[in-house]
């Protein structure tokens, strides 16, 4: 049962990585840049949801919605102010700017919200009355007489990830804007000649990625409820790794890379060593990239001739 327990925890953690990885991979696919501030958008989303629900007493769903709206606007604003002016700048300049935006967000959070950790509420706990009349918080389901315990957070996380992946696949496959995104990621000038506004398309991509980051932030905080201004860095880096692992630029790659990374991490923690788990994750990444430099589902970038 411990195996099954680890597998489910791994898939759940991996689902969070996958949702965050989508932001990295979609932005990379279209703007050909690594948005290192993406992890910190997660943190902002988590704070917004925390204050909305714990301080202002909004219901959880409204809190999440508010976080999504704020992060969507934040993502588009970052793109407009920091990245759009560098559209034709060397990629190193863009990378350094992204790192700068990341520090800016973390320090703004320090100023606004102090370094003191906030305990993120568990939205998924159910208050249950036992037949004897006692009250307790039920946070998950138990199967096989308690041998297998799955928390509600875990279930919701996996479900949300699946829904997001299906929705995004439908969006990029069937809608005009989704197809325009794919066109832009292949050839921006050709897309312009079709009448597609590349700036708008990039803006929409940032909006989607950042909105998803807010959802990922809430899910991550629900599983690991210690909220500080640097909360976003760790899952951000892991998700970036997942995006590269799956093949940066590929949406199914983000899904697969995220899940695999989560499962490998939890298995390494359970069966090998908690301290070494991150080293093991990165070792696997390096091996995969040595064998397949484009990542698991990445396409060979065709050189123009």
């Amino acid at each position: 049962m411990s195996f099954l327990n680890s597998l489910i925890s791994g898939i759940s953690l991996g689902s969070i990585y996958a949702i965050i990885a989508l932001g990295y991979t979609m932005v990379y696919g279209i703007a050909k840049m690594l948005n290192f501030a993406h992890g910190d958008v997660i943190m902002v989303g988590a704070y917004i949801c925390f204050f909305a629900t714990s301080r202002f007493g909004l219901p959880p769903l409204l809190g999440v919605l508010l976080a999504v709206i704020v992060c969507t606007v934040l993502g588009m604003t970052i793109e407009k102010l920091a990245y759009a002016p560098l559209r034709s700048a060397p990629s190193l300049a863009v990378l350094i700017t992204a790192i700068g935006v990341s520090y800016f967000l973390q320090n703004a959070a320090l100023l606004l919200w102090t370094p003191n950790p906030k305990v993120f509420p568990n939205f998924f706990a159910r208050t249950v009355l036992t037949p004897e009349g006692a009250v307790f918080e039920k946070t998950g389901v138990e199967l096989f007489g308690g041998a297998l315990r799955i928390s509600y957070v875990t279930l919701v996380t996996i479900l949300v990830n699946v829904v997001i992946m299906i929705a995004l696949t439908a969006f990029t496959g069937n809608t005009k804007m989704g197809k325009a995104m794919r066109a832009c990621s292949e050839d921006k000038d050709a897309a312009r000649l079709m009448g597609i506004s590349v700036n708008t398309t990039i803006s929409v991509t940032f909006a989607i990625g950042s909105g998803l980051a807010a959802i990922a932030g809430v899910l991550f905080m629900s599983a690991y409820p210690n909220l500080v201004p640097t909360t976003g860095s760790m899952p951000g880096i892991k998700a970036f790794t997942a995006a590269v692992f799956g093949g940066i630029g590929s949406i199914p790659g983000a899904f697969l890379g995220g899940l695999l990374l989560g499962v490998i991490e939890i298995f390494a923690k359970t069966y090998i060593s908690t301290q070494l788990s991150d080293a093991i994750v990165f070792a696997v990444l390096i091996i995969v990239l040595l064998v397949k430099p484009t990542g698991l589902l990445g396409r060979q970038i065709r050189e123009k001739v």
Partner: peptide, 11 residues
């Protein structure tokens, strides 16, 4: 119609 066609190869 640009030089080299520039169609979207993956679509």
């Amino acid at each position: 119609v640009p030089e080299g066609r520039r169609i979207f190869l993956q679509m």
